[in-house]
Design a protein around this nucleic acid. Structure first.
Lengths: 346, 346
DNA sequence: GATAGCACTCGGGATGTTAGAGTGCTAATT
DNA sequence: AATTAGCACTCTAACATCCCGAGTGCTATC
């Protein structure tokens, strides 16, 4: 009799269970799986395999007479080994493009459109965090005297993101003075990244000993405030409301903690910030998440880039029972699109 | 026998019903009301009065053998005539102050703190819309050349709100030219409100016929983009998650449409924008709201001011069963506080 | 090793019952 | 004439019961 690869069959059956459960949200019974294989494997055999899978911790019972449900570990195996990459359809791609590429007049509406696009395509919540100015290319700086104690510092990145900070000073700097500083900085910082600026200026300060010293000193002091080159990190999201139709959130208490996580922002922001350090699509399943409020959810993230430099992150959050293939694909696609939309203009 | 004012008694009983229902979310029976009056009125009498109130459309039955529940009309009468103004406690006031007055470094975090403060104190969702630049006092403008086709326009209001817009031009304006325009505008627009600027400049353009004409023409053209003096209206809110514990939202479908309204922002923004035109605290109860998604909710709004000029609005949204007295009071209090926090600095 | 058969388990929907809260009406009372 | 007591009636929510069916695990068989 022909020998069947046991491992292989286990995987096929796990795949079937995961996919069926993702589709229906109903515990999967042995008959259904058998059916899916056109009865080439009998329910009894499948029950045996299921028992093995359960022992391996990949699936469970809600109760003894119910079908099987994947565990976090089961999803993990599925995502790592079994998932076959899925592509967005042409229609989906063009629908997304339409949402992103309509001339957004500010960063805000672009971010919003982006999170909305993710949620519409994937049916889970879409999340985008604002680009990090620190990782951007310097384009322009301008110091503007508002009154004797306040100076407005405006910075512009190569991709056209603008940030302004009002700095309070003791010393009343005159307009020409500020103008001179602005001009100096615009020349000096050409081609640098914002996170290099402060160390660069400090180095310059050490080298310089002549007449320029006090001028440089003044400049450095002016820019010493810690938040001048970093933007308040914002979190844009969309689709949390429609997620409420999922059976996972039929329990209001579940829904509440989930929404609370978004309201607090902090934990989610941190998660995305960490993931930003790594390349490509990342998946966090259920209990793998540090943040307790979303431990019955999965998070899929991806960094996005401007001219090859990672500058932010976006992703999706939904119940562990989500279409991993599609969501991963959508997130990756939107990462590219957002990057392009922000591309340095010069 | 001494004659009892029937109308008066009706009102007292309606008050009791509304307040009891607000407190417990349970339909109110005749015994409870009688109890509240220390049995000075018998349940039977109260039943008669209740029948009258029901006929007048002020209360209803969920079903025949249940207690009474106020209708929107009932709440309306309560709010207009029966509500006795309630003050925030000293503790509440100082708790709010603490949240608002910790030096917020940007508008964003102030708005967020404000909406959070409302929600924490009132237990319903707090909402704040951003101040309208158009209604603000001009302080400073600066035109910055980024490259041959882009100019950055930075405006600053007297209260220190900064907004920037990137304008695309065909004509390549030089730095000195832009500098001259900036200087001119800063002198010319002193003491004006932003919404007067465009008409003022156009008038100037008509008067002027000499050498200044082409200069002015250039200036007006540069500022012709419609959004330069108006900020993207943003909506900050907080407390929607905790609202989910209310029995009103035990039905997930209810919760979903409610959350959807916040996700869409548009309708709520419009509502607050309209209310901004009027002075003081406004109350919209249930079906009075145009926006369908929140027709089982009440909205309480209040404009906020900088130096006597209305410049924005804030408020609260929650189930019709809310503590009107307290919420109205909190909203009004926060309107003052936010106004002070934004007060013009010079 | 795979499968068929069978006894067993358990959740969930349908049904029935009851307690209790509350009403409306009528007749008695003040 | 207004108020109240009493009583019959209504309806819900909670609880108990029952039963169907989906699904399992085990064992004997192919």
């Amino acid at each position: 009799m022909k020998h069947v690869d046991t491992k292989q069959r286990q995987k096929k059956i796990l795949s079937a269970i995961v996919e069926f459960y993702i589709e229906t949200a109903l515990p999967v019974g042995s008959r259904f799986v058998s059916q899916r294989f056109r009865y080439s494997i009998s329910p009894a055999t499948i029950r045996n395999v299921m028992a093995d899978l359960e022992e391996a911790g990949l699936i469970t019972h809600p109760h003894i007479s119910a079908g099987r449900v994947p565990t976090d570990k089961g999803y993990r195996l599925y995502v790592d080994d079994l998932l076959e990459p899925k592509h967005l359809t042409k229609e989906e791609q063009s629908a997304i493009s339409k949402m992103i590429n309509r001339g957004h007049k500010d960063l805000e509406s672009l971010m919003q459109a982006c999170s909305k696009a993710i949620s519409v395509i994937t049916n889970v919540a879409g999340v985008v965090i604002t680009p990090r100015i620190k990782r951007s290319l310097f384009k322009h700086i301008e110091l503007i005297r508002i009154d004797s104690s306040r100076i407005l510092v405006v910075i512009v990145t190569a991709s056209g993101i603008v940030k302004n900070t009002i700095v309070h000073t003791h010393e009343d700097l005159t307009k020409p003075e500020l103008h001179r500083i602005s001009e100096f900085l615009n020349e000096e910082l050409k081609g640098m990244f914002f996170d290099e600026i402060k160390t660069h200026l400090n180095r310059r300060l050490l080298e310089e000993r002549d007449s320029l010293y006090s001028f440089l000193k003044k400049t450095v002091l002016l820019l010493s405030s810690p938040n001048i080159f970093s933007m308040e990190e914002r979190l844009y999201f969309d689709g949390t409301a429609s997620l409420m139709s999922c059976p996972e959130f039929s329990d209001i208490a579940m829904a509440r903690v989930f929404l609370k996580a978004f309201e607090d922002r902090q934990d989610i922001l941190e998660l995305f910030n960490q993931d930003m350090e790594e390349e490509g699509v990342k998946v966090h399943i259920g209990m793998e998440n540090r943040c307790k409020e979303i431990q019955n959810c999965s998070v899929i993230t991806c960094n996005y880039k401007i001219n090859q430099r990672t500058i932010g992150a976006l992703g999706a959050i939904g119940p562990t029972r989500m279409e991993y293939g599609k969501v991963m694909c959508a997130v990756s696609y939107l990462s590219d699109l957002l990057g392009e939309a922000l591309e340095d203009i010069d």
